[in-house]
Amino acid sequence: MRAVWLIARSVLVEAVRRKEIYVIVLASLGLIGAVMTVDFFRLEGLSKFYREIALKIMGVATALTVIVLAARQLPREFEARTIYPLLAKPISRTTFLLGKLLGVMLAAGFCFTLFSAVFLAGTLYLGSGLHAGLYAQYLYLQMIQMLVLATMAFLLSLLMNLDAAITLGAVFYALSSVLMSAVSYIYDWVGAVGKVVLLALTILLPQLPLFDLSEKTVHAERVTLGGEWTWTALDAPTMAMLTAYGAVFAAVYFGLSLLLFRRKPL
């Protein structure tokens, strides 16, 4: 466990030392700040726009950070030959990979913490309502999504070169909602074989939009009449199902990565 933690800490320290993470977070915060400073026709109480922009930037910036960070962990170790002294120590490859994963997830948590602090401060400043339960669930599900993306990036980086792994990871992330709606929409249009293929795609590929509660968080508002929220927090069984769903994909991708990593000649 201590070895896992040490490796994770080195990933986080390296990410922070290279300052990339800071700059991405700062650039994103700059964008959020710029949006906050715009006077939208002296209208008060406009909050959906701010929430949508902020949550979108938060999600995209963290996902890209995770994909890039995770995808380059293993290739860089091989390229710089720093993996040899590490593995010469009594550290198993499972521990090594787990440490890397934990490090990437800590970096994701670091990003979300910074973003959240600014987002919540902005929400308070603008005096706009936020459904706290939905927001907490949004963050939790985003972290599960990052876990899936990180393990997927590990796997891709072992299957292809670094640029291709990053590109494919980013493209899959960017187009996952299109993929999900395409499969759902065209199901009625295809024959029996096509239906099987679409069903297989639905089951075998992680449906990343399921981890994105941002739309409900954005559009949740107190209705003037009655005072109830337009959208409420998800119930516990749904959250449990989503957790299990993400965990399955993360475990499969991690397992496959480990398999390839073990077979990779040093």
Binding site: L141, M180, S181, S184, Y185, Y187, K195, L199, T202, I203, Q207, P209, L210, F211, D212, L213, E215, K216, H219, W231, L234, D235, T238, M241, L242, Y245
Partner: peptide
């Protein structure tokens, strides 16, 4: 755009989508 439960072939994934998305 998201299918209703009766028309959805995706089982629990469709169910989750209807819960997570507006």
């Amino acid at each position: 755009i998201i299918r209703t439960a009766e028309k959805d072939f995706r089982g629990f994934i469709g169910h989750l989508e209807r819960r997570v998305k507006p």
